[in-house]
């Protein structure tokens, strides 16, 4: 039993990181109906920004977090402005392919500019281990969990309780009526990209804190998994993304705990397939009514 409890702590750590990235997918999908396949690579760039802030500029944890979030948010807005906005009225699939292209570009641009050798993230948090009943919790895990929880709470309050958040929900509801209410759709979409990318950068820093080796391809698998989490929860539903991330994190950690860890992806994605067959709209998603 203590073993399972310990694994749950690990699952919370992994789930928190997935959640921050999954939120970016789900936010963008909510307002644009676009699967932003570049998001995993935005996460990777966020991790590299944190690396440079921490290793080159020598910033401590909190400034590193804020700096990389700001820089990555700017990158997200730029990507939206340059690549996605010209395609707002093009067939959906062109936008998706553009997203794939942007993702590949970010990967290989990073590869070509910083080199292929993995970088070691300097430790930003003094490591200590606390014994809480049967489980051991490290400071790194605590920080990851608290930062992720805080950011998610802020996001939830922002989207549900502020006027701008209401505008975001309105854009996701019906893009054609929103301008009539005096809301700039472009600005809301840019804001959404900024928030999503900022959260991904936070995820990048936390990931690099937990698993301190970063390289240009790290965003591919983590990004796809976060995407899976967003879908499991019901894409477009913010609380669904958080739930899905913890479900996926839990499934992965438990599989790795009881089976050879190479079965992790196999089981995680197998579960996903089963879920999609029986509940294609995700856990919290609502089935879209199709008009004929």
């Amino acid at each position: 039993m203590p073993f399972v409890a310990q694994q749950m702590v690990n699952a919370l750590q992994l789930g928190s990181i997935y959640a921050l990235i999954a939120l970016g997918y789900t936010l963008v999908y909510g307002v644009l109906r676009l699967i932003n396949f570049a998001h995993g690579d935005i996460f990777m760039v966020g991790a590299f920004f944190s690396f440079f802030a921490a290793a080159v500029l020598g910033l401590p944890f909190l400034p590193t977090l804020l700096a990389s979030m700001a820089a990555t948010a700017l990158l997200g807005v730029m990507i939206e402005r340059l690549a996605y906005r010209p395609l707002r009225h093009a067939p959906r699939v062109s936008a998706v392919i553009t997203a794939l292209g942007v993702g590949l570009f970010l990967e290989h641009f990073t590869l070509a500019s910083v080199g292929a050798q993995p970088r070691l993230m300097p430790p930003l948090i003094a490591s200590a281990v606390y014994q809480a009943g049967p489980v051991r919790v490290t400071t790194v895990q605590l920080v990851i969990f608290l930062v992720a929880l805080l950011l998610m709470l802020i996001l939830d309050r922002f989207v549900n309780r502020t006027l701008t958040g209401m505008a975001m929900r309105a854009v996701s509801w019906d893009k054609s009526v929103v301008p009539l209410m005096g809301i700039s759709v472009d600005r809301i979409i840019a804001l959404t990209f900024a928030i999503g990318s900022g959260l991904a950068a936070a995820g990048g820093l936390l990931y690099a804190t937990a698993y301190p080796v970063i390289e240009p391809y790290m965003g591919v698998l983590v990004g796809w998994k976060a995407f899976v989490a967003a879908v499991v929860g019901g894409i477009g539903v913010i609380r669904g993304a958080m739930l899905g991330a913890f479900v996926l994190g839990g499934a992965e950690v438990l599989v790795a705990a009881f089976l050879p860890s190479t079965y992790r992806d196999f089981i995680a994605f197998g579960l996903l397939l089963l879920l999609l067959i029986f509940r294609p709209q995700g856990i919290l998603g609502r089935r879209e009514v199709q008009k004929v």
Binding site: A83, A90, A95, T98, L104, F105
Partner: peptide
Amino acid sequence: QWRMAIAPLLLVFLMILRP
């Protein structure tokens, strides 16, 4: 190494100009 960075960029341009 820049090859793989240029290729997706061309794809993005193509998609914008000819979706």
